[in-house]
Amino acid sequence: MSARYAPGATVRVARDRPAISLGRQHIRTPHYVRGLAGTVAEVMGPFRNPEGLAVGEDGLPEQVLYRVRFPLRSVWDQYDGDPSDTVDVELYEHWLEPAHAA
C-alpha cells in the first residue's frame, strides 16, 4: 500500500467527516486539529481502520497512518509557550487532504 503523502508534505485535517467515517460511532481524530494544516513528520505504514474495528468489523481497507506535526501557535489562539513548540498527532490517511504550505 503506497502512502499518498511524503514526509515534509503539508496536509490539512478534514474539518467535516470524510465519507467513509460518516455515521461511525468511534473516530480517533481529536477535535483540536480538525480543519488545521500540519506537516507530515513520518509515514508509519498501513494499519487497520479503528473506526471499523471498534464495531467488530475487520478494519479493512487498511489506512496509512501518519505522524503529523502542528505548531502549537497554529493550534491555539494566544499560545504563550515558545514559538517552536509543536504537537505531533497520529492521523489516518482518510482524514487528510492535500494543502499548500502557509
Binding site: Q25, H26, P50, L53, A54, V55, G56
Partner: peptide, 12 residues
C-alpha cells in the same frame, strides 16, 4: 475485546 471496542464502550 480489542482496545478499539473498549474505547467505544467508554465513549458510549
Amino acid at each position: 475485546m480489542s482496545a478499539d471496542k473498549l474505547r467505544l464502550g467508554i465513549e458510549q
